[in-house]
Design a protein around this nucleic acid. Structure first.
Lengths: 213, 213
DNA sequence: GTGGCCAATGTGAATAATCGCGCATCCTGA
DNA sequence: TCAGGATGCGCGATTATTCACATTGGCCAC
C-alpha cells in the first residue's frame, strides 16, 4: 500500500489526495448526487476518466472522503472518551468539537446532506459519530444537572448542543451579512465559543423547573 | 380516468396544488438539482411535460413552492412582531416557530439545502425570514440579559436558538434510533419544547460571566 | 337540446445537454 | 521496456424542455 518513495524534498500532494480534497468540498457543498465527477476532475486539473485510476467509482470516492473526515474527527474525540465524565470534561469536549468543525466544516455539511436525504449513508454516519455520546458510560452522574436527568432530557440536551455546533457551520453562510462578519474568522470562533460556553454554564447553574405551558 | 365532476362545491385539490405538494417534499428532501421533474410528475400521477401547463419551468416551480412556504410561516410570526419585546414575547415567539417547524419541516429543510449550496436562493430566504429578527426594534432592553447585551452576543443568541429549532428538524431523522422514538411525534414535540424553554429560561436567569478560557 | 368552438390540460416523441463509466491508446519517467 | 496514469472517444441512461397532437369541459348561438 505504501508507495511513498521518498521524493524527499517536497511533500507533493498526490493526485489521489487532491481528488479527495476537491471531492470533499464539492460533496459537502452540493451533496452526493448533485456533485458531478466532471466538476471534481476540473478542480484537480484532469479529465474525469482519470479519476477511475484512483477510485473504483463515484460511490467509492464518497466513501473515501467520508473515511478521511471521520478519522480526522475521531482522533481528538477519542482522547476525551477516557476518564470520568464531569463538568470540566463536558466543557473540553464541547470546545474540541467546536474547534474541529470550525477548522473543517465539511464533515458537518456532509452529515447534514445525509440527514436531509436520509439515504443509505446516514446509518453509518450516526454509528460512527454519535453512538459514543449516547452510551451508558457517558452519563453525567453529578447532581448539578439533576433537572435534565430527572426529566429524561439529557440525551436531548446532548443532541441539542451537537446540533448547535453543527448548524452553526451549516447555516453560517446565511448569517454572513446579518452578523456583519465572516462566520469562520478567528473572532467569530471566539464569539461562538463564548456563546456556547455561556449556554452550557447556564444549564449547569440552572436549578429551576422548566416553565410550564 | 375521470376528472373532477364537482366543480364548485368541494375544494378538490387542483393539479397545480398537488404538484406543489409533491415538489415541496422532494425539494426539501433532495434539494433543488437532485430533484427530477419526472419524480415530481410520478407522485402527482402525470407525465413530466404536463408540469409545464402549470409552471413555466423547474425554477419557477421551486419559487412557487418557496413562496407558499414563506407565506405559511410569515403569517403567525407577523402577529408577534407587534408590541414590546419582553421575556414572555420571546417565549411565545420561540414556541411558535418550534410548533411551525414541527408541523411542516419542509421550510427548514429547504433553507438548509440553500444554505449548504449557497446558491442564489439563499439571499432571498434570509431577507424574508431572518431580517425581522435582527432589526433594531427587536432588541430586548430589560436588564435580565444584560450579559448577552453587553458582550454583543445577543444576535448570536438569536441565531443560536433559531439554529437549534431548525436543526432539530433537519437532523432529527438521524436520531430516530438514538432517541428511541419518532422525532415528530406529539411526545417528542413536548420534549423538544421543554428542552428549549429550559435552555431559554436558563439564559434569562444566568447572571454570571462566561467561563474564561 | 345540439352542434360547434375554445381554452385548459394531458400525452408521446424528439432534442440537446449532462451524467457515470468502460475501453483502447498514448505519454512519460524510472 | 514497462507500468502507472492521463486521455479521447463513445455508450447508455437521465435530465429539462419543446412541440405537435389528442381529449376534455364549459359556453354560446341556434
Amino acid at each position: 500500500m505504501g508507495m511513498e518513495n521518498q521524493a524527499v524534498t517536497s511533500e507533493q500532494t498526490s493526485t489521489a489526495e487532491r481528488i479527495l480534497e476537491a471531492a470533499e468540498d464539492l460533496f459537502a457543498e452540493k451533496g452526493y448526487s448533485a456533485t458531478s465527477l466532471g466538476e471534481v476532475a476540473d478542480r484537480v486539473g484532469i479529465r474525469s476518466p482519470s479519476l477511475y485510476n484512483h477510485f473504483k467509482n463515484k460511490e467509492a470516492l464518497y466513501q473515501a472522503v467520508l473515511e478521511r473526515l471521520l478519522e480526522d474527527f475521531s482522533a481528538p474525540l477519542a482522547e476525551l472518551e477516557k476518564g470520568p465524565v464531569n463538568k470540566e470534561r463536558v466543557f473540553e469536549w464541547l470546545e474540541t468539537i467546536v474547534r474541529q468543525h470550525h477548522a473543517n466544516p465539511n464533515l458537518a455539511r456532509l452529515l447534514q446532506h445525509a440527514a436531509l436525504s436520509g439515504g443509505p449513508h446516514t446509518n453509518e454516519l450516526i454509528d460512527r459519530l454519535f453512538s459514543p455520546m449516547f452510551q451508558p458510560g457517558a452519563v453525567i452522574e453529578e447532581g448539578d444537572i439533576s433537572l435534565l436527568e430527572s426529566t429524561g432530557l439529557q440525551p436531548w440536551a446532548v443532541m441539542a448542543f451537537n446540533n448547535l455546533v453543527m448548524s452553526y457551520v451549516t447555516m453560517a453562510p446565511m448569517y454572513r451579512d446579518l452578523l456583519g462578519q465572516d462566520p469562520f474568522s478567528e473572532e467569530a470562533l471566539e464569539k461562538q465559543l463564548n456563546l456556547i460556553k455561556t449556554l452550557l454554564q447556564a444549564v449547569f447553574e440552572y436549578k429551576g423547573a422548566p416553565p410550564g405551558g
